[in-house]
């Protein structure tokens, strides 16, 4: 009973926020809705028995995305972009009708899904000992579907390349993102000094428990990225220039190591991404740590954005 009530409350709140977001006039308001939406989505994931996803949603959905969109809204308010013409009332109504039809069709499809639901849960459980991991989601990510994880880490590297490729003339090789003045006093300064050490400890904790319990590299990486961004926004930490070999190596190292281990598996075991017998645990841990570091750096760089016009050497 309490469960159903909670589901209804969460669902109604999410729907209200979504509608508010789409109807919002200003980008700042819409972003405030978005952050609240991300928080509630985190609760929804808890109700769906997916604590791993709840952690990720809290870190990436509400945290990093919220900050990215907030700063973007602020910068766009200062320098607006030409918007396309809004569709007229008739066309808007037509679009609304079509979207409603799509939603209804999807709803009907969900209601018609077969019972009992096909599931791989039993197979995941049966093979989990071979992965040397206790958390089934981590088992899927690092063993059964390791290829997806590897490719995703490559996608993150590619996104950094893509964002950097947007550097305006004269900015190439400079410091990523806008410049932030050093904040010397006030609550912001306090927070920016206090939070990162705590955050790093929490991130390491979440990475470490991720082997056997909800948590793991994405969540830890998102927290680490947030901490770096915090220090950056308070002007306490200047990121390296994007020309820096070390910075670039840090972005690529995780995916590179994963690829190397995948190839080693192909040579030793005859299948790409097969972990050589007896080495599974050590290699999985090595990949998890390297990926955490690389993804954290990449996520932070993505939020910072490309260098700005003038190089402030």
């Amino acid at each position: 009973m309490t469960g159903l009530l909670a589901d209804l409350a969460i669902g109604a709140a999410i729907l209200a926020l979504a509608a508010g977001m789409v109807a919002a006039r200003s980008a700042f308001t819409a972003t405030a809705f978005f952050i609240a939406y991300g928080l509630l989505l985190g609760l929804a994931w808890v109700r769906l028995g997916a604590v791993d996803i709840a952690l990720t949603e809290a870190a990436i959905g509400a945290g990093l995305s919220g900050v990215l969109l907030l700063t973007a809204a602020a910068r766009l308010a200062a320098r607006p972009v030409a918007t396309e013409r809004a569709p007229g009332p008739l066309l808007t109504a037509l679009i609304a009708l079509c979207c409603a039809a799509v939603a209804v069709a999807i709803g009907a499809a969900i209601l018609s899904l077969p019972e009992p639901t096909p599931s791989l849960a039993a197979e995941v459980a049966a093979n989990l000992p071979a992965t040397a991991l206790g958390n089934p989601v981590a088992g899927v990510l690092m063993s059964y579907r390791a290829l997806d994880t590897l490719l995703e880490s490559a996608v993150v590297v590619l996104a950094v390349v893509g964002v950097w490729s947007l550097t305006p003339p004269g900015g190439w090789g400079g410091f990523p993102g806008p410049f932030h003045l050093r904040v010397e006093s006030g609550p912001l300064a306090l927070l920016a000094r206090l939070l990162p050490p705590i955050g790093i400890v929490i991130a390491l904790h979440i990475l470490w428990v991720g082997k056997d319990a909800p948590g793991g590299k994405f969540q830890a990486a998102a927290i680490l990225a947030a901490m770096w961004l915090l220090a950056w926004m308070a002007g306490l930490a200047t990121p390296p220039r994007i020309a820096s070999r070390r910075l670039r190596f840090a972005v690529s190292a995780g995916a590179g190591l994963f690829l190397a281990i995948g190839v080693a598996g192909a040579l030793a075991e005859g299948a790409f991404l097969a972990y050589p017998a007896g080495w599974t645990k050590a290699l999985v841990l090595a990949v998890e740590f390297a990926l955490t570091a690389s993804i954290a750096v990449a996520l932070a760089l993505l939020v910072m954005g490309p260098p700005e016009e003038e190089d402030r050497a």
């Binding site: 509400a62 907030l70 927070l191 929490i202 428990v209 909800p214 901490m227 915090l230």
Partner: peptide, 25 residues
């Protein structure tokens, strides 16, 4: 694990608060 989720949420809420201060209109 939900405690870890709460911890993450608290940490990121503080982070988002800073961003809010930096980005506020």
């Amino acid at each position: 694990a939900l405690l870890d989720a709460a911890l993450t949420l608290a940490l990121l809420a503080a982070f988002a608060a800073v961003a809010l201060v930096v980005a506020a209109p």
